[in-house]
Design a binder for these strands. Structure first.
Length: 304
DNA sequence: TATCCAAGGTAAGTT
DNA sequence: AACTTACCTTGGATA
């Protein structure tokens, strides 16, 4: 594998790999020590994280195995190709985090969340795996969502062997579409199994693709994504925020809804669309999704 | 040890 | 359009 390192002082603002990868935005990385979401890694800890990256339109890469760890103020990587453009894309190393956080409103809850997870960035997950991940996320715990994605990759994705280690790529739409509902239920997807199968079939058949939402304005893009089975407004917002770069998207999940009830009650406007507009405005508009993701991670970890 | 419950919601059926 | 209800599974809480 090729090796390299990205000095973190070349970025605009801080970076925290553990917070970025384990905050519940992406379910496509695994920690090499196996402790993902379960055993604590101190912020700034030096665990290896690894993933198989599909070809990305924005990067122009071939499929690649990427391993990365944060140590000594650097992002150290090993990869089957040059990982710098891939990591820059996936982990949003090109964001000016100081400017983004600086542009959000003066708010004591947000300030505590920013302080607790200083350096956490949003991710840019590959669109199809992101879509499937969040279809699986309905009424499910973070660690189990991750387990489902690992099971899908292990069972139905390509197996790669590099330097004596085995990696599993996330299944392609065609690979997933070939599975029956019963097979997917056997992976403990529950009632999400037919959603995953039918959505994979839609993509495999060329009927629609999540990346196609990216050409639209934010609310049109959200509406577009709800054509996929198992995708409502909340899951659509997750795909827009964590894959397609709509940083204004604020997924109204259980945690942000409780934050609205406790801290921004005037933003509860009844319907998803109207509440979404109100909280988006309250969290600063353009980068409201950054604020949402800090709040989600902070509140889920027990912060108040 | 047994039971209960909520987990990053959505689809389908009613009013 | 807004409101109900069913839905798989399981780890952790409660009895």
């Amino acid at each position: 594998m090729e090796r390299g390192a990205i000095p973190l002082d070349t970025l605009d603002g801080p970076f925290d790999l553990q917070a970025t990868v384990e905050s519940g935005q992406s379910y496509l990385w695994t920690r090499a020590d196996g402790g993902m979401y379960e055993r604590d890694v101190a912020h700034g800890g030096d665990a290896w994280y690894e993933t198989v990256v599909p070809p990305l339109d924005a990067v122009g890469n071939d499929r690649a195995v990427v391993r990365v760890r944060q140590a000594d103020e650097r992002l150290v990587w090993e990869s089957t190709t040059d990982a710098v453009p891939i990591l820059t894309h996936l982990l949003r190393l090109d964001d000016d985090l100081d400017a983004i956080l600086g542009a959000t409103p003066d708010d004591s809850l947000l300030a505590r969340a920013y302080e607790a997870y200083r350096g956490m960035r949003l991710v840019r997950d590959p669109p199809f795996p992101c879509l499937i991940s969040f279809i699986c996320s309905a009424q499910m715990r973070v660690s189990r969502i991750h387990g489902m994605q690992r099971a899908l990759a292990t069972e139905y994705g390509d197996t790669l062997s590099v330097d004596g280690r085995t990696y599993h790529a996330f299944p392609t739409p065609t690979q997933l579409a070939a599975r029956t509902e019963e097979e997917l239920r056997a992976l403990k997807l529950g009632y999400r199994a037919p959603y995953v199968g039918r959505t994979a079939t839609m993509v495999a058949d060329g009927e629609a693709t999540p990346a196609a939402a990216g050409d639209r304005s934010y609310e049109d893009a959200r509406e577009y994504l709800t054509r996929f089975v198992g995708v409502g407004e909340k899951v659509a917002d997750c795909v827009l925020l964590f894959s397609l770069g709509y940083l204004e998207a604020v997924p109204l999940d259980t945690w942000i809804r409780s934050a609205i009830a406790d801290h921004y009650p005037d933003c509860d406007r009844g319907s998803y669309a109207e509440t979404s507009r109100a909280i988006r405005e309250r969290l600063g508009g353009e980068y409201a999704g950054y604020a949402q993701t800090y709040l989600f991670y902070y509140l889920r970890a027990g912060g108040e």
